[in-house]
Amino acid sequence: MTGLTADTRVLRSRHWSLRISRRAAVVCGILSGLLLVLLVAALMIGEYVVTPAALVQTLLGDPPARLDGFFVLGRRLPRALVAIVVGASLAVAGAVFQTLTRNPLASPDVIGISSGASVGAVAVFLVWGGSLDQAAIGAVVGALVIAAVIVLLTARSGLHGVQLILTGVALSAIAMAVVDYVLTQVFVASATTAQTWLVGSLQGRGWSDLVPAVIALALITPLLIRMAPDARMMALGDSVSTALGVRTVRARWMLLAAATVLVAIAVATAGPISFVALVAPHIARRLAGTPSFLAAALVGALLLLAGDLVAQYAFPAPIPVGAVTITIGGAFFLWLLWREGARRG
Rank of each mutant, 00 (worst) to 15 (best):
W207R: 13
L43A: 03
I45V: 15
Q203D: 08
L55V: 10
A314S: 10
V186N: 09
A155D: 06
I113M: 01
L223K: 06
W207H: 12
A6R: 12
A323M: 13
M233F: 14
A311F: 01
A270F: 08
I20K: 03
L309T: 09
V263E: 01
Q312F: 04
D180W: 06
A123N: 04
A170D: 02
V72A: 05
R9G: 11
G341K: 14
A266D: 01
V151P: 02
G289T: 08
A301H: 05
R19M: 13
L255N: 01
I84D: 02
V179P: 05
T193M: 12
R75T: 12
L159E: 01
A297C: 08
L132R: 10
R232Q: 12
A297H: 01
F333W: 04
T325E: 02
F71Q: 06
V85R: 08
R205I: 03
L224R: 08
R232P: 08
A25T: 15
I30S: 07
P63F: 12
T269G: 08
F125T: 09
Y313H: 10
Q57R: 15
A342I: 13
L305E: 00
V124G: 05
L81W: 11
A6T: 11
L294K: 05
V49I: 13
L38T: 15
I111C: 00
A93L: 05
V321H: 05
L183T: 06
S13G: 15
V246P: 04
V169S: 04
A54R: 04
A311R: 02
T260W: 00
G112W: 02
M1F: 09
W335K: 08
C28T: 12
R76T: 12
D230K: 13
W197F: 13
L18T: 07
R285G: 06
I165V: 14
L43F: 13
A143W: 00
D7H: 05
F125V: 08
F333M: 06
A218P: 15
P212F: 05
S190D: 14
F293I: 07
W197N: 09
I111W: 02
A280N: 03
